[in-house]
């Protein structure tokens, strides 16, 4: 048991420590806020940082309403019939699909068929589809954890079903939903394959100007400077990995804090 734990924890720690130690040295003000120069071998990664953050929020914009709405439907309204069973089955399978398949789907659906081009819109929609199963299943779980009697009580004083959900069930389930949303978006933030064909720019030393513009993004940038550019200084590679990890860790820390803040208030 202890050995198994070590076998899992030690490699992760080694990776984290290496990246932190080596990446930390590359971090300075210019690295964080400047455009890349000299074929990305000098300068900063500012557009990639901004691009990743924009993608996270754009993905949330698309995925949260659909995901939370779907979870409410499944947990509060849907009856157990073949249609809902199919939806659930599809969700489980979607969660297991390799991310590059999402990327190809995004290319076919959003970039080419819907003519959004290689753009933030295409990339965010692709990432949104990839995160939906996570958001729906964690949100549904959070909604189901709210005791049935709260819904009953709401009905017993004359509330409609939606009012019971809106004023009692949702507020109770919110911490769980927020956690699920952030976890889903985190996965989106770190993925390379789905944005590869749909939004990511190889080298674009400026900020995106519209939702239909391309943007650089950290995971893809990291892939590019690690494999596609000969003679790349290693500290830039480690620095980029460090920043990506930092963004992901900040989000997940926020999720943990939100959850523990609400959990202290919950008492049933």
């Amino acid at each position: 048991m202890a050995l198994a734990t070590l076998a899992v924890v030690v490699p992760i720690l080694l990776v984290l420590v290496t990246i932190f130690v080596r990446g930390y040295q590359a971090i300075n003000w210019e690295f964080l806020t400047a455009m890349p120069r000299d074929g990305m071998k000098a300068g900063g990664i500012f557009p990639a940082i901004v691009g990743t953050i924009i993608l996270i929020f754009a993905t949330g914009l698309a995925a949260i309403p659909v995901g939370v709405g779907g979870a409410i439907y499944l947990s509060e309204y849907a009856r157990d019939n073949w249609a809902t069973r199919t939806i659930r089955l599809a969700m489980i399978n979607l969660a297991g699909i390799p991310s590059v398949v999402y990327g190809l789907f995004g290319l076919g659906m959003f970039v080419l068929f819907l003519r959004f081009g290689t753009s933030i819109v295409s990339g965010a929609l692709t990432l949104a589809i990839m995160t939906l199963p996570i958001i729906i299943s964690t949100s549904e779980e959070a909604l189901r954890a709210v005791p049935v009697e709260f819904r009953t009580v709401s009905a017993s004083v004359g509330g409609t079903r939606w009012q019971g959900i809106r004023y009692v069930v949702l507020p109770q389930a919110l911490p769980g939903i927020i956690t699920g949303v952030i976890l889903g978006l985190l996965r989106a933030a770190g993925e390379t394959a789905p944005i590869l064909f749909t939004v990511a720019a190889f080298y674009l030393p400026r900020l995106p100007r519209s939702p239909f513009d391309q943007t650089m993004a950290l995971p893809y940038h990291l892939y590019v400077i690690s494999t596609q550019v000969p003679g790349m200084p290693p500290q830039i590679q480690y620095g980029t990995a460090f920043v990506l990890l930092l963004i992901v860790l900040t989000f997940s820390l926020t999720a943990t804090l939100i959850r523990s803040f609400f959990r202290r208030r919950r008492q049933w």
């Binding site: 017993s156 004359g158 004023y167």
Partner: peptide, 24 residues
């Protein structure tokens, strides 16, 4: 209206519990 076997206030303030019905 209905009162149940086990007391089941919403995990909200006293005020919000009473105000729930009039509000909805």
């Amino acid at each position: 209206g209905m009162v149940f076997q086990r007391p089941n206030p919403f995990p909200q303030t006293i005020f919000d519990n009473i105000a729930f019905g009039p509000r909805v």
